[in-house]
Design a protein around this nucleic acid. Structure first.
Length: 428
RNA sequence: GGAGAGGUGGCAGAGCGGUUGAAUGCGGCGGUCUUGAAAACCGCAGAACGCGAUGAGCGUUCCGGGAGUUCGAAUCUCCCCCUCUCCUCCA
């Protein structure tokens, strides 16, 4: 959630950010109008209450309290009525009142874009910053992972459909072991880089979900149990970021770096017909997620480190990939700045997202009430960052496709062999 | 699922319906002392929002959340939420 004070003081900055995201900047004027409505109502509430408090205090000090109360009665009744009226008016536009229209507008406003984010209308305008490795050239027609997976008997899409419907998969034998090896590999690397490993719940409450910004825009994208009102996490970003919700963190303990392996659950309702084959887009997938909580003036530097942590994994796995600066219209709702790491997929003959690293600045910290005390003693929301390190399914399919051989076997990247304990996928 | 206990400031922990925004302890900040540090001692310190110049200052609200009683509620009543303990069930 944006700081309403920023909207008030620097509306042009907010308008500009919205415009760059391809959104209508006129909400800013709506917000300003309601906000001034609210403040004038609030002023009259407070003024009237001050008067009432003063009278009450006098009654408390009077020797004959009953008599004083009786004497003040008519005045107090009048004040009470005025307070009730003004309060009603104030409440209608209060930014922190659940049902208020101002709140509704604020909730749907995305984070302010950082100036360094390139302009662009969509994915195609993302800027490639650097490319690592060379896409493999095959002297035979390379197969997509879903074919290789079935042939090797390590991925079973058909039985997954039978069990759970579309967009699910079953990993078997070496496939399941490869997946587990990747989890272990990623967690070990993150641990080595100072991330504290966390095994969080996969179900979280509505307020947890709200606190990290997932509920404003993506409510439809999540699985939820109606009885308990619990949500299945769409990413470990949610429990990791909200881990310190409503806490005041000692500044000496910042930055805090957390890593978690979890399953992730997404309805993918808006992606009908997209990526229907293979492991790319599933209702349930595994991911190792990296999250930082840090001081505001360090967060952009932290984003570079986070990106480095994510991309180094692909280097170790010898998977060709590139880093793109996500353009203004493509940066996520929570993010002020975002990099995507894209891995080469022979079946698509292009690069596909395997990690997304975002600096959410204070957007989530404010909602979630995660704060620290500045040197001057002021409380301030922390900045939060998150990035995949990495998506397990997409890494697995990238390995299968990039390291395939003519005979249908697949080599395991050397760095991973201590984890898999086998050096190739073969039909068993 | 059943029974009980409890939710107060960064933490711990008091609080007859009327200067209690809240004792006390720890922690924090500033100072005295010290070559420095520790200890000891003295002092300062809650949060959100609004007005104001992003200052001084002023005001309102806040003791889990919401309603109520009252001129006045942390303190009384009702509802909800959460946590803890015990029992039951269970990986």
């Amino acid at each position: 959630m944006l700081d309403i004070v920023v909207i008030r003081r620097d509306p042009d900055r907010v308008r500009c950010s919205l415009r760059r995201r391809g959104l209508d900047p006129s909400v800013v004027d709506e917000v300003l109008r309601m906000d001034s409505e609210y403040r004038s109502a609030l002023a009259s509430v407070e003024e009237t209450k001050a008067e009432k408090n003063r009278l009450s205090g006098e009654i408390g000090k009077a020797r004959d309290k009953a008599a004083a109360a009786a004497a003040a009665r008519p005045t107090l009744d009048g004040l009470a009525e005025r307070i009730a009226r003004a309060e009603e008016r104030a409440r209608a536009f209060a930014p922190d009142e659940a049902g208020s229209p101002l709140r509704a507008l604020l909730e749907q406003m995305p984070n302010l874009l950082d100036d360094s984010v390139p302009d662009g209308r969509g994915e195609e305008d993302n800027v490639v910053l650097r490319t690592w490795g060379t896409p493999p050239s095959f002297d035979f027609p390379p197969k997509p992972h879903w074919e290789l997976g079935e042939t090797l008997d390590v991925i079973d899409f058909q039985r997954a459909r039978h069990l759970s419907g579309s967009r699910f998969s079953v990993l078997k034998g070496q496939g399941a072991r490869l997946s587990r090896a990747l989890v272990q590999f990623f967690l070990d690397r993150a641990n080595a880089r100072g991330y504290v490993e966390v095994a969080p719940p996969y179900l979280v409450t509505r307020s947890t979900m709200w606190s990290t910004g997932q509920l404003s825009k993506f409510a439809d994208a999540m699985f939820r149990d109606a009885d308990t009102d619990l949500y299945l996490i769409p990413t470990a970003e949610v429990p990791l970021t909200a881990l310190h919700r409503d806490e005041i963190l000692d500044v000496d303990t910042l930055p805090r770096k957390y890593v978690a392996y979890t399953a992730c659950f997404r309805k993918e309702a808006g992606a009908a017909g997209k990526d229907t084959r293979g492991l790319v887009r599933q209702h349930q997938f595994d991911k190792v997620e990296l999250v930082w909580l840090c001081e505001p003036d360090r967060s952009f530097e932290a984003l570079e480190q986070l990106l480095g942590d994510a991309s180094s994994l692909l280097q170790e796995l010898e998977l060709p990939h590139r880093i793109v600066a996500v353009c203004s219209n493509d940066v996520g709702f929570n993010g002020a700045k975002q990099y995507d790491v894209e891995v080469w997929l022979p079946s698509a003959n292009t690069y596909r997202e395997i990690s997304s690293c975002s600096n959410c600045t204070d957007f989530q910290g404010r909602r979630a009430g995660i704060r620290f005390r500045t040197a001057k003693g002021k409380l301030q929301p922390v900045h939060t960052l998150n990035g995949s390190g990495l998506a397990i399914g997409r890494t697995l399919l990238a390995i299968v496709e990039n390291f395939q051989h003519k005979d249908g076997t697949v080599s395991i990247p050397p760095a991973l062999r201590p984890y898999t304990r086998f050096d190739a996928l073969r039909r068993e």
